[in-house]
Amino acid sequence: MPLIQMQHVSKWYGSFAVLTDCSTNIEQGEVVVVCGPSGSGKSTLIKTINGLEPFQAGSIMVDGISVGDPKTSLTLLRSQVGMVFQNFELFPHLSVTENLTLAQIKVMKKDPSTAIAQGLKYLDRVGLIEHKDKFPGQLSGGQQQRVAIARALCMQPKVMLFDEPTSALDPEMVGEVLDVMVQLAQDGMTMICVTHEMGFAKKVSDRVIFMDQGKIVEDCTKDEFFNDSGNRSPRAKEFLSKIIQQ
């Protein structure tokens, strides 16, 4: 059974439709890249999966938990779905270690020493163990984002959502973050990434979802999207031709 089942999800503000009839399934271990022009609803789509964006129609099941059901405990759901934000969103008043352990202690009810051990383990995985007592304001953008990834991993989620993780980074720091994400994919994490980094998509993704104006226009394998573009929809072809030029 797929880890995530999204069926006919729609979301609108007044008369403006943000998402229209979006359906897709994500299997465990898949790496899916979501791309498309600005305003196509990519960020909104992944935010519906962990309940940060409510939706008016359709259903989403994450490992058997129904996201739209009012009786679902969203905190329980969110502790199993990790999210990395475009602006990193580390908590500036807490040290790196405290950022990593806050949710472990308060949501997963771990005791502090276990939480710290876990936090440092993931901090080491992203290569930043020596910064454990620093504060976010003392780190570069790339370092902050890697800490943010470690923070999400500490919750041992079943799936990781990435919302344009490298868009706010200086070009020279993009690589260090993508390396972490590639490693994560190769270790078997289920990942959904909204990104413009097509190199990453080609290297590591299994599938590509292309969105335009709130609709899923393409939902195919990586090979079909990049190598068989002749069979793709006109909008997708147009998008591909523009980015291949880069």
Partner: peptide, 15 residues
């Protein structure tokens, strides 16, 4: 505060 702070806290499962 940046709106993402609240979103990040919620995404971690904090109430």
């Amino acid at each position: 505060l940046p709106r993402g702070q609240h979103a990040a806290a919620m995404a971690l499962g904090l109430s």
